[in-house]
Design a protein around this nucleic acid. Structure first.
Lengths: 233, 233
DNA sequence: CCGGATCCGAATCGATACTG
DNA sequence: CAGTATCGATTCGGATCCGG
């Protein structure tokens, strides 16, 4: 498989050979949220051909980025190795960088649980959050419900089933009611970029408060924020 | 060209669509060193097909990552836009990450000026350098001669012509003689990873001091260092 | 359902040649 | 110097199929 080598002795080149193939980094992105089964990955990457998924998983294993872990009586999952997990800050930074180039969603663009989870984590401002009171936000995006639990400079994102029960194994860190429940469309991007204030967002029906104190949206906007200083030339 | 879209509304996805194509990030890596002409890029990426180079440059321009700048009477250069330059910390981090996976160079692996330059910048420890005296190192790798000028927490890498004159336009920051001149083979990787001390490296003929105070190699090793904690599983 | 493997047409890549 | 043009070799994408 080294046939497609770039022929350079360089760290960047090595990195790109490991995770530069098509789809590879998106697989890593989803695995950063947690271990996933083959089928979960396929669902999270709706447009990936199954042979490509299986090829990439093999390559990522050979590269020491991903590990295959059998579950007793329950199938198996793929998870990042410690080395693979070191990509987290890089993927988050790439997410922030790419955020600036995101336009509006195309007609076929899909939003997945893992991509929103990572989006929240890329947008999370630990420094800003540290000086704000803790808060639990429940965020509805289409059928997806996520809980963002902000406690000091720490963020934990969990997926909630539409009914309101966590699906992920392991209880949420604190069993408390959300301080704010709101629904968002793709326009939430404009809030996170600071283009829109929460109030404007509600006026334009980009956001809708379902329950809780609407003024908490201000805190949300301070906690989750991506500066997009430079526009594309 | 959006035909190969990943179909997700996500920052990471956007980023990968902009710079995830084959060769694209290596072009960015070379442009991070400075503006380059088409021919320079081709030389720096010896194995890139010329049609791919030209396609990528067009795509990177469309994406607002790269800009084409005509030079009066002297052809033209490609350079990163401000948005493209924001990739610098990401590329450096990727270089550090990939460094851990670098084995020994393959028989066909080439080392280029720009890749060494970026390698030095990825390995540069601003914090360590800040508490050490300034120093100028001239580093010979094959035919390539680079000058690493460390001043406090700042690093400037310039290419020197084999004879000893800077080729890059603009004089080096300070016109002073190097404190240390040494030659290195690919084994310098083991020094930068801390696998080898400078003394061991000299014993094993990985490094050879050409001129100057050999004990400065210790300072070099403290200044340029990449921790490779996690081994590939 | 889970975890893939296989097959095939379409698009991309790589190598070389060629041009303003 | 700065690319196009061409063409065979790969890879990707989409669909289907298979063993547990």
């Amino acid at each position: 498989m080294a046939s497609r080598s770039y022929g350079q002795y360089c760290g960047v080149t090595s990195a790109v050979e490991l995770i530069g193939e098509r789809w590879a980094l998106l697989i890593v992105r989803d695995l950063l949220v947690g271990p996933r089964r083959y089928t979960d990955l396929k669902q999270g990457l709706p447009k990936i051909p199954t042979n490509i998924l299986s090829t990439r998983l093999k390559e990522l294993q050979e590269g020491g980025v991903v590990r295959r872990v059998p579950l007793l009586h329950c199938g198996l999952v793929y998870e990042l190795t410690p080395y693979g997990r070191e990509l987290e800050p890089i993927v988050l930074a790439l997410g922030r960088w790419g955020f600036a180039a995101m336009g509006d969603p195309g007609p076929d663009d899909v939003v997945t649980v893992d991509s929103i989870t990572m989006a929240l984590r890329t947008a999370f401002r630990a420094d800003a959050a540290a000086s704000l009171p803790s808060a639990v936000y429940d965020l509805h995006v289409g059928d997806i419900v996520l809980r963002a639990d902000v406690d000091g400079d720490d963020l934990v994102v969990t997926q909630l089933a539409p009914a309101g029960r966590p699906t992920a194994p392991g209880a949420p860190r604190r069993a408390r009611e959300p301080d704010l429940v709101f629904a968002a469309g793709p326009g939430i991007r404009r809030v996170i970029s600071g283009e829109l204030t929460p109030t404007e967002a509600i006026d334009q029906e980009v956001l809708a408060v379902v329950d809780g104190d609407a003024t908490l949206l201000e805190r949300f906007a301070e906690t989750f924020f991506i500066e997009t200083a430079a526009a594309a030339a």
